[in-house]
Structure formats: structure tokens, C-alpha cells
Simulated assay, not measured.
Amino acid sequence: MKSQTGNKRPPRRQHDRAFKARLVRESMQAGASVAAIAMANGINANMLFKWRRERQCQEGAPQPAPAVLLPVRLASESEDSAAKALPLAAIAPAGAKSTGVIELEIAGGRLRLRGAVDEASLCSVLRALRQST
């Protein structure tokens, strides 16, 4: 049986609001690494994520941008898909740089995305494809 004196935990650390606010602000900067900020300040990254969520709840959760669905055309294997593919780069957001091609073959169909791809839009398309199969 363990003695009562051996079960004592160290007291929980109390962080002041200014410390929390500073770390949350730093972590919200573009390109900031939550893990690196947390490690540099001696806290667990999960704690910083919790503080970020609390701040978002206090400010009111921002509404996500509406999904932009792109036109899709399925080409049969016999068609020359390179010549007849829909040029999705032409409908990419203004100022977007062409960064490559994403091509997926799903259930006998082919989805080809060229240029800059909005992550939210791609997630919406993949979710719809997953639900339709």
C-alpha cells in the first residue's frame, strides 16, 4: 500500500492572462509553429491549443469561407484526357500561381486539378466523392 505522502502531486501552474494572450497572439501569426512556441515557453502544445480555442470561443467563432465548387468533367479512358481536360487553372483565384497538378483516380473516374488548389474546396470535393461511393 502506498503512503499518503508519496501521492502528492506538484501544484498546477497558474499562467497569467498576459502570458496566455501573448502566446496565443504569437501562435496566430502566419507560419507560426504552435509546438515551437509552446516548447520555447515551457508549456505543452496542447495547452496552447486549448488557449487558442478559448480565445476563439470568446471572440465568437469565425464563419468559414463558403466552399467554392469547381466544375468537374469525367473523361472515359478512351478519350484523350490531356487534350480535353477542363483547364481548372483558368478559374483559379486571381493572382494564384500554378504550382502543379493533382490527379486522382477514384472508382473508375479521374479528377485532375491544375494550379493553386484551395484546401477547403478540395476537402469538399473529396467528402462528396466519399459519400457517393
Rank of each mutant, 00 (worst) to 15 (best):
S124T: 15
N7K: 15
K84L: 15
P64H: 05
A36V: 08
P11Y: 09
L23A: 03
E59C: 12
R127D: 12
K84Y: 11
A61R: 15
L126M: 08
K20H: 06
R53K: 15
E119N: 07
R25F: 09
E59H: 13
L74V: 14
A75C: 13
Q63E: 12
Q4F: 13
T99Y: 00
F19G: 04
A96D: 02
R114G: 12
A128G: 06
R12S: 08
S132Y: 06
R127L: 15
L74T: 11
Q4W: 11
L122K: 04
R52C: 03
P71N: 07
E77Y: 10
Q63W: 09
P93V: 09
M47Q: 14
S121F: 03
K84I: 15
S132T: 14
L122Q: 01
R130D: 07
R17C: 07
S124K: 13
C123I: 12
G95H: 04
G60L: 13
R73H: 09
L23P: 00
L104E: 05
M39N: 07
S3C: 15
A21M: 08
I91V: 14
K2M: 10
I102L: 06
D16P: 05
T133W: 10
A83H: 07
L88N: 06
A61C: 13
G100N: 04
P87C: 12
N44V: 13
L23I: 02
I106W: 06
P66M: 02
L111C: 06
E105R: 06
Q58M: 14
G109D: 07
R9Y: 06
V117R: 01
E119M: 06
L86S: 00
A120I: 09
K50C: 10
Q56A: 14
L48P: 02
I106S: 02
M28G: 03
W51Q: 03
V101F: 02
A32H: 02
R22D: 12
A32S: 10
R52F: 00
P93L: 04
M28W: 06
P93Q: 00
L70V: 14
A38N: 02
G109T: 09
E26P: 03
I91W: 02
N46P: 04
S81N: 11
G109H: 10
P66H: 03
A82G: 11
P10Y: 11
A128R: 11
A36F: 04
L74Q: 11
L113R: 01
G100M: 07
K97Y: 01
P93R: 04
L129S: 06
L122S: 04
Q58K: 14
L113E: 01
P87Q: 12
A30L: 04
G108C: 06
P66C: 01
S3M: 15
M47C: 10
M1P: 09
N46Y: 09
A85Q: 10
L86I: 06
L74C: 12
R25Y: 07
A89K: 01
A45D: 11
